[in-house]
């Protein structure tokens, strides 16, 4: 089965890239530049008219939502053990965590837009940036509670595809909110970042990145 992933360094497509690495699958990686017009090239618009990453080409299909890609890959490669199929005792929690990844993702995306994509301060709203950071912190409260029984990963049985979906968001969220009062989230972030498959998915040293600062402070209102 031929698999091609269209990716931009540090974008949501990281979730899918990391999962492919965890699964040890053969795939072709096409890296697009997040900042120039390459996602708007006619060739790429053929693949994904929405001009976004990820796009996962698999088995003659194209999947453009990262959550759908993660769920589908885990489903069609059950032998990798990274999904929790229908009927599994952890199925509901697995699904809830997969979708929770986008509850984190939307605040993260709004903050990325405000701090990074909008390059001039006068384009930004400090009120919105503060509110988004507070909301992101609040949403992470759910993860803090999920991990509070001392488990290493989202599900008690161990690492799953849901960790690829949520874990990416945790790593980006660290750049926008302080994890001082989220000790379980902080430890979880360190645990996932230490995984060899995660590290293999990181961008090489010399490329343009979305995130160039460790922390983006919300401006004073």
């Amino acid at each position: 089965m031929k698999i091609t992933l269209h990716h931009a360094h540090e974008a949501r497509s990281f979730r899918v890239l990391w999962l492919l690495e965890e699964m040890g699958l053969d795939y072709e990686l096409v890296v697009h530049n997040f900042f120039d017009k390459s996602l708007r090239s006619p060739d790429y618009l053929e693949i994904n008219p929405a001009a976004r990453v990820p796009a996962l080409e698999i088995d003659g299909k194209v999947i453009v939502e990262s959550g759908a890609s993660v769920e589908y890959l885990c489903e069609i490669f059950p032998e990798k053990g990274l999904g929790r199929p229908a009927g599994d005792a952890e199925r509901m929690e697995y699904l809830d965590m997969l979708h929770y990844a986008e509850s984190i993702g939307q605040h993260m995306a709004n903050l990325t837009q405000a701090h990074i994509v909008l390059y001039k301060p006068e384009m930004r709203s400090p009120t919105q940036m503060n509110l988004e950071a507070r909301r992101l912190h609040k949403v992470l409260g759910r993860l803090e509670r999920q991990l509070s029984d001392g488990r290493d990963y989202l599900l008690a049985s161990g690492f799953s595809g849901a960790d690829c979906a949520v874990g990416y968001g945790v790593e980006v969220a660290k750049r926008f909110v302080s994890f001082g009062d989220l000790p379980h989230c902080a430890a979880y972030g360190a645990r996932i970042a230490a995984r060899p498959a995660y590290q293999r998915s990181l961008p090489p040293e010399d490329v343009q990145r979305i995130y160039t600062k460790d922390f983006y402070e919300a401006p004073d209102v």
Partner: peptide, 10 residues
């Protein structure tokens, strides 16, 4: 269950 997408799947 909390996430509407997950509820729909479930």
């Amino acid at each position: 269950i909390y996430e509407s997408g997950a509820i729909i799947e479930y």
